[in-house]
């Protein structure tokens, strides 16, 4: 929701753009770009070095995180985990079990890649499996994250390197 102050700034900028000279126009464009950067455009690498965020060595082993009273274990196969290939995602929940199957949202830290959800099906004993694809980003960045949402419990975030 735009506040009246923001509306006033936009109006003044618009008037300056229409009536003013080059400096006013440049200021307006500068303000507009600043607004886009701060409100809509996540700049590549805005969260710093994404490799510093890695909390999971998925290339060699499964990864574990705590969520409420439940352990969430993520494993992806086959290994090495490569982008642009069919991957099997396995979530093992120990302890309290959810009311509905968990699901995984794949994305990149600091870069919008569009929604990429991996639905999971229960195969018994707290194990849930599904297939999905980690796509390749031409920027060359290889750090991906899997947000594992367990209904009524919350979301665990696994950040790991992928091979391109």
């Amino acid at each position: 929701m735009l506040t009246s102050g923001v509306k006033k700034v936009i109006h003044q900028g618009r008037m300056a753009f229409l009536q003013g000279g080059g400096v006013s126009r440049m200021l307006f464009i500068g303000m507009f770009l600043l607004f886009m950067v701060t409100h809509g455009v996540p700049v590549q690498g805005a969260e710093g070095d994404p490799s510093a965020l890695v909390n999971c060595d998925i290339q060699h082993t499964s990864c574990t995180q705590e969520l409420s009273d439940t352990q969430v274990i993520l494993d992806i196969s086959p290994k090495p985990v490569k982008a642009m290939s069919d991957l099997k995602f396995r979530i093992i929940l120990t302890g309290k079990q959810p009311v509905a199957p968990p699901y995984i949202d794949l994305g990149m830290p600091g870069m919008k890649m569009g929604p990429n959800r991996v639905p999971l099906k229960s195969v018994g004993n707290g194990v849930h499996e599904g297939t999905g694809i980690i796509v390749r980003c031409p920027s060359g960045k290889k750090v991906w994250k899997a947000m594992v949402t367990v209904p009524n419990m919350g979301t665990a975030e696994f950040i790991f390197d992928v091979i391109y």
């Binding site: 890649m113 990429n116 694809i133 390749r136 031409p138």
Partner: peptide, 12 residues
């Protein structure tokens, strides 16, 4: 052109 979000949309 190779593009991450296009790939994601194609997966969907």
């Amino acid at each position: 052109l190779p593009c991450g979000p296009v790939y994601t949309a194609l997966v969907a």
